[in-house]
Design a protein around this nucleic acid. Structure first.
Lengths: 110, 110
DNA sequence: TCCATGTTTGGCTATTGTGCCAAATATGCC
DNA sequence: GGCATATTTGGCACAATAGCCAAACATGGA
């Protein structure tokens, strides 16, 4: 008899989709910038430092994942974070980074 | 004077690296399984349902990112989560999923 | 309507990630 | 040492992603 654990594969796919939408340095920059408040694509383009079309595509990905939403104001598309808890990701990621540094120190130091 | 925002590009790269290591359905399954306690590669292989070599590579990626650690016990490599807060990711991801469903309902229903 | 501005989309190339098989490595037992 | 078991690594085929440029689209103003 196989494992009783149900294979929520679809559920995991959807979750992975969301996490994937965050798994890029430029997109993290964008989230970070948006944590201060909503911004238009131009602002984000300056911050990220890539082509505007590239930034727009990043935003499309994040929007599809449900991480950001946009509204139109005149010519501009203004983006904002959709779910506040996204910011908690950073805290945990930092914790991992700190742990990594410690391990590295421990490994090289003693 | 340019924007005061420093370009912590390297920092973002490192963070993205960690998030990327989670951004895959099989790896999420693994994290989920490990949240119950440490497991060897065989167990995880059964749970994930891929080739053992594939699972091993996933584990290598997560280990390099600092998400899991392994210890050797006889022939087995036993993996466990390294930083507890990883599990909070799921809570937020679920929140995004719920918000997505609501939006979808709102968009189609009214 | 024509033009300027802001954003998105198309298309292409280069890079990276994934998954399987087969082979190599590591450990324990006889 | 030789064999069985558990895991990792190499290598290749395939898919997915990222980035740029150019072109299309949308909006507002003259």
């Amino acid at each position: 008899m196989p494992k009783a654990r149900p294979v929520h594969r679809e559920a995991y796919e959807r979750k992975a989709q969301i996490i994937k939408a965050l798994a890029h340095p430029s997109r993290l920059m964008i989230v970070d910038a948006l944590s201060e408040g909503e911004k238009c694509v131009q602002d984000l383009t300056e911050i990220v430092g890539s082509d505007m079309s590239t930034v727009s595509k990043h935003l499309t990905v994040m929007k599809a994942a449900g991480i950001v939403v946009d509204r139109k104001q005149g010519l501009q598309a203004i983006y904002r974070l959709r779910v506040p808890c996204i910011l908690k990701f950073f805290g945990c990621v930092d914790a991992v980074l700190r742990a990594n540094e410690e391990s590295w120190r421990a490994a090289s130091g003693g």
